[in-house]
Amino acid sequence: MPYDWKRPSETVQELHLWPHNSLPPRGVMAAVLGVFALGTIPMLAVLGSVLLWGLLPFVLLAVLGLWLALEMNYRHRRMLEVLTLTDDQAHLVRHNPRGRIQEWHCNRYWARPEMHKLGGPVPNYVTLIGAGREVEIGAFLSEDERIALYDELVLKMRVPSVSPG
Results as ranks from 00 to 15, higher is better:
residue 143 E to Y: 01
residue 46 V to H: 05
residue 111 A to L: 03
residue 165 G to W: 12
residue 90 A to V: 01
residue 157 M to A: 02
residue 98 R to C: 04
residue 16 H to E: 04
residue 120 G to T: 06
residue 51 L to F: 11
residue 87 D to W: 10
residue 76 H to G: 08
residue 35 V to L: 14
residue 75 R to I: 04
residue 123 P to K: 05
residue 97 P to K: 08
residue 4 D to I: 07
residue 24 P to T: 02
residue 96 N to R: 15
residue 69 A to P: 02
residue 86 T to N: 06
residue 3 Y to W: 15
residue 7 R to H: 14
residue 125 Y to D: 14
residue 30 A to D: 05
residue 135 V to R: 06
residue 137 I to V: 10
residue 57 P to T: 05
residue 107 N to D: 12
residue 113 P to R: 03
residue 117 K to M: 12
residue 131 A to N: 15
residue 140 F to I: 11
residue 127 T to R: 15
residue 154 V to W: 06
residue 116 H to L: 09
residue 131 A to F: 06
residue 62 A to G: 13
residue 156 K to I: 01
residue 83 L to Q: 00
residue 116 H to S: 07
residue 49 S to K: 08
residue 125 Y to N: 11
residue 94 R to Q: 13
residue 99 G to W: 11
residue 147 I to F: 00
residue 38 L to Y: 09
residue 123 P to Q: 04
residue 7 R to T: 11
residue 12 V to P: 02
residue 138 G to P: 05
residue 78 R to M: 15
residue 156 K to F: 00
residue 47 L to N: 14
residue 109 Y to Q: 07
residue 112 R to T: 08
residue 52 L to H: 13
residue 31 A to N: 02
residue 34 G to T: 05
residue 5 W to D: 07
residue 133 R to E: 10
residue 61 L to N: 05
residue 85 L to V: 02
residue 97 P to V: 03
residue 11 T to K: 12
residue 78 R to K: 15
residue 128 L to Q: 08
residue 139 A to I: 12
residue 51 L to A: 14
residue 165 G to E: 13
residue 7 R to G: 02
residue 72 M to I: 07
residue 30 A to G: 12
residue 132 G to K: 09
residue 138 G to K: 09
residue 91 H to P: 00
residue 86 T to G: 15
residue 122 V to A: 08
residue 95 H to K: 12
residue 116 H to F: 03
residue 60 L to T: 15
residue 91 H to E: 06
residue 142 S to I: 04
residue 129 I to H: 05
residue 77 R to Q: 15
residue 92 L to H: 00
residue 110 W to S: 10
residue 25 P to W: 07
residue 10 E to L: 07
residue 85 L to I: 03
residue 127 T to E: 10
residue 45 A to V: 12
residue 36 F to T: 10
residue 69 A to D: 10
residue 129 I to R: 15
residue 7 R to I: 03
residue 126 V to N: 03
residue 154 V to Q: 09
residue 3 Y to R: 00
residue 99 G to M: 07
residue 13 Q to R: 15
residue 58 F to H: 10
residue 80 L to W: 01
residue 104 W to T: 00
residue 4 D to K: 15
residue 25 P to V: 03
residue 27 G to C: 03
residue 88 D to E: 14
residue 119 G to P: 12
residue 135 V to H: 02
residue 74 Y to L: 10
residue 100 R to P: 00
residue 122 V to L: 10
residue 62 A to K: 08
residue 138 G to T: 11
residue 132 G to M: 06
residue 15 L to A: 00
residue 165 G to H: 13
residue 120 G to L: 06
residue 147 I to D: 11
residue 39 G to I: 02
residue 163 S to V: 14
residue 25 P to A: 05
residue 48 G to V: 12
residue 42 P to F: 10
residue 133 R to F: 03
residue 154 V to Y: 06
residue 5 W to C: 02
residue 89 Q to V: 09
